[in-house]
Simulated assay, not measured.
Amino acid sequence: MLVLLPPSETKRVGGDGPPLHLPDIAHHAELGEVRSELVGEVVKLAADLPASRAALDVSERQDDEIARNAQLYDSPTMPALDRYTGVLYDALDARSFSRAVSSRARSRLAVGSALFGLVRADDPIPAYRLSAGSKLPGSGTLASRWRPVLDPLLARIAGGELVVDLRSGGYAALGRVPGAVTVNVLAERPDGSRSVVSHHNKSHKGGLARLLATSRAEPSDAAAVARIARRAGLTVERPEPGHLDLVLPA
């Protein structure tokens, strides 16, 4: 099973790994060319602060993130799962994995990235700023550049193992996963009506990712994923094949 996560806008800075070496990142044969092009463009763009702010949709107060983009080739790296921070990754809490489950858990986790396409948990990456909706000057959308290489890669992965796709819409658009299990987080009100959870959505998906990554079970379909969640006390429904609703009291 592969649990596919969205990245986070916020990232831990620093690291003690060597500078970026793209062949060290998983799936380099399929994704290396686009990765190299994007890294080069982002580094070059960082020399123009106004253009970078516009492309990355950041303010002057975030110029330190542009400065980090300028140093992508030279700054230290750390494992991707440790690099990303924020609500989902706080709930996942990968740093607390016991030694007994860490290897299995980290082998099951991957992140969809606007800059690198797809990274595995232990891939060494630097801090960077590039979102799925970023618009680099003189080029098409990031989806138009990633899908020709990500679509076939993700289809091949999905042909060999179950993929639980927890990415948000913008990142899911970078590469489609045929047959993936997808998840909505819904709040149920006292009157029985439901609404999509927005503010705490990432936290609950991070908790679900932790359950799946650390489980001894090897689920092969949505029903098996639902069973893992239910054993942990979660309320999960299957409104349609390949899709789960995680239902929370409002």
Rank of each mutant, 00 (worst) to 15 (best):
L166T: 08
L162V: 06
T182K: 09
P148I: 08
G170W: 04
G159F: 03
V185N: 04
G160R: 14
A180T: 02
T182F: 03
V164A: 10
A187T: 08
G170M: 05
V183T: 04
G160P: 01
R167V: 04
R156W: 12
V177K: 11
R189F: 11
A155F: 03
L166A: 07
V164I: 14
A173W: 12
G159H: 07
P148L: 05
G169K: 07
R189K: 15
R167D: 02
G175H: 05
G170H: 03
P148R: 08
N184I: 00
A187P: 06
L150T: 05
L162N: 10
L153W: 06
A155L: 08
P148T: 12
L150V: 06
G170R: 10
G160K: 15
I157N: 02
A180D: 03
I157V: 14
V185I: 13
L153Q: 07
A172M: 14
P152Q: 01
G169I: 03
E188S: 13
R167C: 10
P152D: 09
A172I: 06
G169M: 05
V181L: 05
G160E: 15
L166S: 13
E188N: 11
A187K: 14
V177M: 05
V177D: 04
R176F: 09
Y171A: 00
A180H: 04
P152G: 08
P178I: 00
V185S: 06
E161K: 13
V181A: 03
Y171K: 07
G160F: 04
T182E: 10
L174C: 13
G169C: 05
L162W: 03
I157F: 02
D151N: 15
L186Y: 08
G179V: 02
Y171E: 10
N184L: 11
L166Y: 03
V163W: 00
A155D: 13
L150S: 10
G160T: 15
V183F: 00
R156V: 11
V183S: 05
A155N: 07
V149M: 09
V183N: 06
P190K: 09
L154G: 08
V177I: 13
T182D: 05
L174D: 12
L186Q: 10
A172K: 14
G160Y: 03
A158F: 01
T182I: 06
G179P: 06
G170F: 00
E188F: 08
A173Q: 14
L166Q: 09
G159K: 03
A172P: 06
V163A: 02
R156Y: 04
